[in-house]
Design a protein around this nucleic acid. Structure first.
Lengths: 195, 195
DNA sequence: CGCCAGTGAGAACGATCGTTCTCACCTTGG
DNA sequence: CCAAGGTGAGAACGATCGTTCTCACTGGCG
């Protein structure tokens, strides 16, 4: 009866990305060597380089997957929240608050990687721009459903970005609630409940 | 008549910090080697290490000086703007807009360094926290003079942080105007003009 | 069985970086 | 004039990192 580590079942590519995400996000990209990724993934160096021929490609794959998952998780939460369009917009900030409270939360992976590598890696800079643009677009759709103008969506996006930054630097999830309250005020000002 | 480069007049420590600030802020800290700082400062390696015995200390000195200058520049601009307390609060966002439009603007040096080194360097993390706390405190003072509650100050801080991030990632200074408009709405909601 | 393509494990290589050392030179005080 | 200490310029050193190579081994296929 040989041992059957359940991890052995998992696609090696996924294991590498899992290890890379935890390490890159938690410590910063340049602070993590390929050997640390190899060790955390439980694979050999050869295998790691078979799937990602260079660290750059692993970094880009990490950012791509994280972007997709992050936005999908947000969209699922908002959709499940249901309620009025206005409540859906506010649900975005509830979701942020839960994210901020997760152990290991360290801010936006894209802002962090942009600050670290954006000046030297066009791919990383583009990934950050793409992520922020997609988030802003998603938020704009929600805000439009409320009947508020696009300018309000841009303002709510600033609140969300600011909340992420402040929560990260201060390690305090309360920023989400502050941003939510401000968002509610801005929505009221831009799309007042008709009387 | 020997050559007298005016740079020779400047305090070596200042020249090192000037070089370090331009390089660290523009490219990221880990992406800049001590030799690049030496070359940009026009000094010898020996001299650089005489003033900053390790790169860590140069990084911390860079962050300390940038924090002091950044906040002083903001305070001077706001003070010169004069006007009502409300106008002073909004002047913060005007100042941000000018900063965003400067060539080489690449976001908040403290957020960038926090993302890059905050997880491994407690000193860098503390510098970022300190900078953000000082800015929030300054803003709270201005908001208090308007007669709005501290919660409003926290909300305006989120707007400012978000504007910095968005302006950096998208390279678009318009975020300052959006944040300013949102700030005006939040101020109106929290401290309405008495009629 | 015998061959070979592919693997695991880790050493090796070349580049980079932070930091220190060498050494010739200059200054300055006795 | 000479000894002593500091300086400029850059080489040297040790560590780390991204990437590749070695080599013994294995499993499948003719």
């Amino acid at each position: 009866m040989e041992q059957m580590d359940p991890l052995d079942q998992i696609d090696p590519r996924t294991r590498i990305l899992d290890a890379a995400e935890e390490l890159f996000y938690g410590r910063g990209i340049q602070a993590v060597g390929m050997d640390a990724v190899r060790a955390a993934s439980g694979l050999t160096m050869r295998r790691v380089y078979q799937h990602f021929p260079a660290k750059d490609e692993l970094v880009e794959a990490y950012l791509r997957r994280r972007d997709a998952r992050w936005r999908a998780s947000l969209a699922v939460h908002v959709a499940r929240a249901g309620g009025t369009p206005r409540e859906q917009v506010l649900a975005v900030f509830d979701w942020l608050g839960r994210w901020f409270a997760e152990p290991g939360f360290r801010g936006c992976a894209f802002v962090n990687s942009f600050g670290e590598l954006g000046a030297t890696s066009p791919a990383v800079a583009a990934a950050a721009r793409h992520h922020k643009a997609e988030f802003a677009g998603y938020l704009a759709g929600l805000v439009d459903a409320v009947g508020a103008p696009p300018a309000t969506a841009a303002q709510l996006a600033l609140l969300a970005e600011g909340a992420i930054t402040v929560a990260a630097v201060h390690g305090d999830p309360a920023a989400a609630a502050e941003a939510r309250a401000a968002a509610a005020l801005l929505l009221d000002a831009a799309a007042p409940v008709r009387s």
